[in-house]
Amino acid sequence: MLLAFRTVTKPPIGCTPYIAVYGKACQHRSEFRAQSLLALKHTNFDVQTAGDHRKVQLNELNELRDQAYENSLIYKEKTKRIHDAKIKNRVFNVGDRVLLFNSRLKIFSGKLKSRWSGPFTIVQVFPYGTVELSQNSGPNFKVNGHRIKHYFGGDIPTEVVPDLQTFPKDN
């Protein structure tokens, strides 16, 4: 599993993690024997030439890592641009009516139960997105501005009676 992760090209860096660490492609066991015989055939026993070749390989590895780092920065910038484009800039003013997202409902949620409660009235808007809400019964409370949205409907009746109709069963 780890070998599979290390040998698959990752889009953010533009290469495999194995190549970014070792500077060359991973050789699988089936390829290893043939590659080792080929390497023995082309082995250069001159120490000076082998040292120079290794220095070139290390420089290429540094260039590869620099390129992977630049690719990751470009990928992060693009991802941030896409994320920021989806963020809605909401402006809340004192007296606006809003609905509050109930994040705790995710644990015990019913399929058709709404996660929005309210409406509440904005009493005060603080810097950095904090909003103080007032409710009809109970004290005022502060919430993060990302958890609320504008409420455009009319008044919600206090007692909701479902309008159920029964139809005779077809035989």
Rank of each mutant, 00 (worst) to 15 (best):
1 M>Q: 07
2 L>Y: 09
3 L>A: 14
3 L>N: 12
3 L>F: 12
4 A>I: 14
6 R>L: 06
7 T>S: 05
8 V>D: 00
8 V>M: 05
10 K>L: 07
12 P>Y: 00
12 P>A: 06
13 I>Q: 01
14 G>K: 03
14 G>V: 02
14 G>R: 00
16 T>H: 04
16 T>Q: 03
20 A>L: 04
22 Y>G: 02
22 Y>M: 02
22 Y>V: 02
23 G>N: 00
24 K>T: 04
24 K>F: 09
25 A>G: 10
26 C>E: 08
26 C>A: 11
30 S>K: 09
30 S>P: 04
34 A>P: 00
36 S>I: 08
36 S>C: 07
37 L>H: 03
37 L>W: 03
38 L>T: 10
39 A>C: 09
39 A>P: 02
42 H>T: 15
42 H>C: 10
43 T>E: 06
43 T>S: 02
44 N>Q: 06
45 F>V: 06
46 D>L: 06
47 V>K: 10
47 V>F: 08
48 Q>E: 13
49 T>G: 04
53 H>G: 13
55 K>L: 08
57 Q>I: 05
57 Q>S: 11
59 N>E: 11
61 L>I: 00
61 L>F: 01
62 N>V: 14
63 E>K: 05
64 L>C: 05
66 D>M: 11
66 D>C: 12
67 Q>D: 08
74 I>N: 01
75 Y>S: 10
75 Y>H: 12
76 K>F: 15
76 K>M: 15
77 E>M: 13
77 E>K: 12
77 E>L: 13
77 E>W: 07
78 K>Q: 15
78 K>R: 11
82 I>K: 15
82 I>Y: 10
83 H>Q: 14
84 D>H: 07
85 A>T: 14
86 K>W: 07
86 K>E: 10
91 V>W: 01
91 V>M: 06
93 N>C: 14
97 R>L: 12
99 L>A: 01
101 F>A: 07
103 S>W: 05
103 S>P: 05
106 K>C: 10
107 I>S: 00
108 F>H: 04
111 K>S: 14
112 L>N: 14
112 L>H: 14
112 L>D: 08
113 K>S: 11
115 R>P: 15
115 R>G: 15
115 R>C: 14
115 R>V: 14
116 W>N: 00
117 S>E: 06
118 G>P: 03
119 P>T: 01
119 P>C: 03
126 F>E: 09
126 F>K: 11
127 P>T: 13
127 P>L: 06
128 Y>R: 15
128 Y>G: 03
129 G>M: 05
129 G>Q: 04
130 T>Y: 03
131 V>Y: 01
132 E>K: 13
133 L>D: 02
134 S>F: 02
134 S>C: 12
136 N>D: 11
136 N>F: 00
138 G>D: 05
139 P>A: 15
140 N>E: 13
141 F>K: 09
141 F>H: 11
141 F>T: 08
143 V>I: 08
144 N>F: 03
145 G>A: 06
146 H>C: 09
146 H>R: 09
147 R>I: 03
147 R>W: 06
147 R>V: 07
149 K>D: 03
150 H>P: 01
151 Y>I: 04
152 F>Q: 12
153 G>V: 04
155 D>S: 15
156 I>L: 12
156 I>Y: 05
157 P>V: 06
157 P>W: 06
158 T>P: 14
159 E>V: 14
159 E>H: 11
160 V>Q: 13
160 V>C: 09
160 V>K: 04
162 P>N: 00
166 T>L: 15
168 P>I: 10
170 D>I: 13
